[in-house]
Write a protein that binds this DNA or RNA. Sequence first.
DNA 1: TTTATATTGATAAATCATTATCATAAAGTC
DNA 2: GACTTTATGATAATGATTTATCAATATAAA
Lengths: 123, 123
Amino acid sequence: MERSTRQRQAIRSVMAELNRPLSPTEVLEAARHKVPGMGIATVYRTLKGLVEEGSAVPVELPGEAPRYELAGKKHHHHFHCSKCSKVFELEGCPGDFSFMAPSGFKTERHEIVLYGRCTDCLA
Amino acid sequence: MERSTRQRQAIRSVMAELNRPLSPTEVLEAARHKVPGMGIATVYRTLKGLVEEGSAVPVELPGEAPRYELAGKKHHHHFHCSKCSKVFELEGCPGDFSFMAPSGFKTERHEIVLYGRCTDCLA
DNA sequence: TTTATATTGATAAATCATTATCATAAAGTC
DNA sequence: GACTTTATGATAATGATTTATCAATATAAA
């Protein structure tokens, strides 16, 4: 991630603009609007670089290949639309769930995923 | 799933005895204690059959290949030990999380996963 | 500009989980 | 026990995602 290329700029801006976890394919599709002809390998390479330098984080959802979002957001969870498969960021968190664990277990973190229909898919 | 074989009996009993979501590999290892020489293909075939007949369900966790647990349990969530990677069943559920979704979204279900150390790994 | 070299795009290769294949073995009926 | 057919185990094949390769191109410093 040494040089600033059109491709990398496009990928970064797409992630900032869409502001939701994106799959490599989603990144490619959106970034191609800015840089036609971009290849999927560039997306994978750039996402890997962004994660390594700490400016993006992988978002893993059950049964899904990883998506990526920009780093620096505070603790939050995600909504997965069962129609369009887009993933959206949710604000806030109900709190601590360590009470759910059996006694003797030490809970360090948690993940919550909501499933349903997003606004666009309900319309 | 027509015939009752030693392999199928072993797989069913292992799932009942361990009472937690098991990966095909975990099933194989445990079932081999009852039927030495069992092959992984038999595990995959049997798990698929159990799911099709409705007596087992896949358990998907973020970034993990599916595990399987016996069907018929009431709504619950899971704990994933970050040391031994075993997944445990949690009892109960804090409730409804649809308030977390943005207005205009329709929440249909949710998943909660706790991460930390299980009792054995803390000892 | 020229130049050194990092980056790109196309695609082959690698990974990993799961499924298909097939000869052999076992279940269960007669 | 003999027989018909399903099930098994070993392993090749598949599918999906991600990474490696490499010639051509673009970046940015001199």
